[in-house]
Design a protein around this nucleic acid. Structure first.
Lengths: 344, 344
DNA sequence: ATTTAGCACTCATTAAGGTAGAGTGCTAAC
DNA sequence: GTTAGCACTCTACCTTAATGAGTGCTAAAT
């Protein structure tokens, strides 16, 4: 589609602009080592590239800036082929640590990622669907307060405090917890509510007074939604980018980032692998002049979570894509190992 | 020290400037209902106030802006006397909820506070020193991984995953946990490490093989530092303030807020009650043109935690001080109630 | 048929000058 | 003691001019 020369010059323009954030002129290009043409020749090529929609002017006599189409072409045709071969062991040691929960791992990854790139990283914690219940417990604090604790085989711990209704006697509470533990151990979190009503309900009916009240109560204590874990690293990194010199951009960006649902939405795509959305390809208005790169990590075919980096469209795509590929592989490997060790 | 008239005009200037963020001129003052003097008279008074250091000009022919000394006087002499009488049940319902952990309560408070004021709220979670150990538990996940869980009588839950060294046998682990539970229940977290070494160590020596290795291991699993809980609400609120139109201020501010230690330092003062630090009264350079208002909540004489609001020096002091007073009282009451109910 | 030098032209950026208006300080009258 | 009046100051905003980076086009060179 593009001639070699056009491609070369497009590449130089994008690389230069990514580095400097300033429009790139023909003279500057012709001075590059890789380029052996005069400025006038470059200008002709640039005119072609502009006509094709890969680059733009900011005003009628300015240098050129990559268009979104230009970035898209760059990502798809220039970078993608080279990533496979590149050396991906940058983040190896991050994960070699002694066993820690996935959540800690994920959190640390977010920090490292944002530090390495100076963009903002967003990581969606591992979905807990595939993990299984290890233990349920209720610790009573006083006659009318208690804390419920749930442990999964992945080392994930959830807890919730609640007050004990007067109608439920301590002995009933204990009985119920025993029943629950007996029946629910090893059940995956996704099926918890289901098994609860199918198997456990009838048992409780037999042994526990006022079981209905108790049942609904317990259910709300243990099995209401399992919170989604969203980690954001380097929120302030983007502030340093020159495209953030406009205060109002800063304001709208941060307003967006404060809304957890909205951020979650960014990562919702069901695809595996790396996905790059550039500028207006993003659905969310607030990031229409950002680029978002997402990767997923998974266990077998069960998608577990997402890693993403958010930066200006003028982003170091090569570096970011390489990093994300590496990290998502690492995390997938770590998950696989853990799964094997827990022999299931 | 100030005449009635001087005080009145100082008050008008500050109130006006807090609202508008623009320098206040003599003409504007003379038009206020409360003011019956002409602009010329006001000018004379303003000259006096300036000489006394309570107000300043931004340039030789500008209106006046409160100086830090002016704010200080305003806070100490104008606001303080009126707060006692004001109606403080704004936040009552926040705390009337069913029993929840302090931490949740604290987090929610931070949100409400920042929403109500459109400044940034910082809350230091309840110090756990006075809470007592309720239960220790170890849940083994596989042959070589486990998670340690610690529950306090305040409903606070801490957990940590770790791998089990080969030298420690499962039965030893169980024995140790039994011993620990037996001996440490009811011990305050502050004394935990102390009791551990004085009472428990010798016991373990008798029952557990390779106790030294096990001991140091357990110690690190359970009793390393208890993380400080710091909640920040409405980080982006300050962005809306006009004093943040300068991007570099934004940058340095956020750089500061990212550093947890630094934020913690802001709240370290040991005093009870409300404390207002204005502009350069703050030690930290990054907030030299902010004001910080801190309050503490406590249980008896044991200070538990801090609530603070960070805003521009042009802050709605009256509103903020009122709110903080109310909230700190509420939280102190809630703590007291809880303490009584747990009858200790 | 490409490539390049040359040149006129465009536009952003910066500096310099110029005006309007808000606000002050001071003086003199009330 | 208070106020009207007035000259003065400084900012904010606008206009104008100069500079320079960069372009498109044409015509010559390869």
């Amino acid at each position: 589609m593009l001639t070699d020369r056009q491609l070369l010059i497009l590449q130089v323009i994008i690389d230069e602009f990514i580095e400097s954030a300033h429009p790139v002129g023909s003279r500057a290009i012709s001075k590059k080592d890789q380029i052996s043409y005069s400025a006038a020749t470059i200008r002709n090529v640039m005119a072609d590239l502009e006509e094709l929609g890969f680059i733009e002017k900011t005003h009628s006599s300015s240098g050129r800036v990559p268009s979104e189409k230009g970035y898209r072409y760059y990502v798809d045709h220039v970078i993608a082929p080279t990533v496979e071969n590149s050396n991906l062991n940058i983040m190896k040691n991050l994960i070699q640590d002694e066993f820690i929960e996935f959540e800690k791992l994920v959190q640390k990854s977010a920090e490292v990622l944002s530090e390495l790139t100076s963009y903002t990283s967003i990581i969606l914690g591992p979905e807990v669907f595939e993990t299984r219940l290890k233990q349920l417990q209720i610790v009573t604090l006083s006659t009318h307060t208690a804390v419920a604790i749930l442990v999964t085989d992945s080392g994930h711990v959830e807890h919730r405090s609640f007050s004990i209704p007067a109608e439920i006697s301590p002995s009933d509470l204990e009985k119920m917890v025993n029943i629950l533990n007996e029946r629910l151990k090893g059940v995956s979190l996704a099926r918890l509510a289901e098994v609860l009503s199918s198997e456990v309900l009838s048992l409780m009916k037999m042994y526990v007074q006022d079981f209905e009240r108790s049942y609904s109560y317990l259910k709300s204590a243990f099995f209401s939604e399992h919170p989604v874990k969203l980690y954001i690293g380097g929120k302030t990194n983007l502030l340093m980018q020159p495209e953030f010199n406009d205060i109002n951009k800063v304001r709208s960006f941060y307003r967006m980032m404060e809304n957890e649902d909205e951020v979650l939405n960014l990562l919702k795509s069901p695809e595996h692998g790396i996905k790059v959305t550039i500028g207006n390809e993003n659905e969310l208005d607030a990031i229409k002049d950002f680029s978002l790169i997402t990767a997923s990590y998974q266990l077998g075919d069960n998608q577990m979570g997402k890693i993403a980096l958010l930066g200006p469209t003028r982003m170091e795509y090569r570096k970011v894509i390489t990093l994300l590929t590496a990290l998502s592989n690492e995390m997938t490997d770590a998950l696989y190992l853990w799964y094997k060790n827990n022999g299931k």
